[in-house]
Amino acid sequence: MSLLLPDSGLLFWMFLSFGIVVFILVKYGFPVILKMVEDRKAYIDNSLSIAKQAHEELASVKSEGETIVDNARREQVKIMNDAAQMRDTLIKEAKDKASVEAVKLVEDARKQILIEKEDAIRDIRRQVALLSVDIAEKVLRGQLEKKDEQLDMINRLLDEINISKS
């Protein structure tokens, strides 16, 4: 039966030691552990949500980047097309201009040549007239060395004038 009766000395020591154990562990032991585990849990949850957010942000940044790259590529194609077109028009314009210019130049040259030719012909004519006058003078001078001949001549000329007058 002694097993079933609590011993007073043992009760005393148990109260004392278990009371101290409870006091110390309830104050300094378990709350620290529980709080830290709780804090760590909160920290992990927080980190996870942050990571998720970062992931989403990264995805959005990525898609944004892709759209930017797409746009840039489209722009590039457009610019290149424009450039090619412009080049073609420029070349065409230049060609047109050049051909017009060439035609004009040729025309001018032809005109110049014509003018020059006419000038030259006029000059030759003048020279020829002068020369023929000189020759005629000389011829006349040779023929008119005798007096009757001179008179003949004058008569003839006068006749001629008269004829032409009438």
Partner: peptide, 30 residues
Amino acid sequence: FDISMTKVVCALLFNSALLIFIILTVARSY
């Protein structure tokens, strides 16, 4: 009136000290 430190009391005190030591060691590492 007997509050002798019997075998059970000594083992009890030893276990209490051991428990406090273990839990406080764990708590300190945090």
